[in-house]
Write a protein that binds this DNA or RNA. Sequence first.
DNA 1: AAGTTAGCCAACCGCCACCGC
DNA 2: TGCGGTGGCGGTTGGCTAACT
Length: 236
Amino acid sequence: MAYETAAAMHGESLRKGPWHEDEDERLITFVKLLGSRRWDYVARVSGLKRSGKSCRLRWLNYLRPNIKHGQISAEEEKIILQLHERWGNKWSMIARRLPGRTDNEIKNYWRTHLRKKALIQEQENFQFGGDNGKQLFLFQEDGSSAQNYNGESYKPCKDILDTENSCYDVVGLSDFTLTSSPYQTRLSDWIPEFPSDQSEIKSQHCNSSDSCYCYPAWISEENDLWGCSGSLWNME
DNA sequence: AAGTTAGCCAACCGCCACCGC
DNA sequence: TGCGGTGGCGGTTGGCTAACT
């Protein structure tokens, strides 16, 4: 295996299994020192008897700054369902849309919580011959043009998945902004510039087909917050 | 109280793509 | 152009714990 590092080459077997606190500390120290790119080098230099691959995984899934541990919020769940419906098991792509969440976490959450839900949803869609499930999760709260969802009035927003570069609000950015979730899913928790005040949000480009692109006041529509080129949530 | 089952999640494995030589 | 090294990704596993019988 290419990941056999210095430890293995010197006849020492690589450590596997759960990481100890001192290993974590050491890894953090060396990643700060050497960066989070050359994992094989980090593994070798740090003296950790771990593969570079293992170090990378531990860093990305647990030690990286701004990692969000704790329960997936309802808002996040909606996004996961919607994105999975479109992209399938592209966990890393989905994770890029969820600040602080890792692909591993989302994958695990999907398997344990959402797979059944998605199946049921799929069956319902099939049963009723509609594609309602697709839009259910992506509504922008708005007094006009009411559409019922869980007893509340919503106006449909443009599907985020029309393109990779679609408006960020269509995955429920307003939910992020206004949520009272205890799990820090508000964008304002992650982006200092992002207004926590609802009034800062403005909605633009509502067209005849009921599609709305929504922007906060502080960002121009040219700034593609949800765009895939580059990662907004790059924690490095 | 003890044994069994189910749920959850961290970590491993294998494959693939990319890059430099 | 081929090859080896490395990083990234998705699938899978194994251990821990809570719930249930």
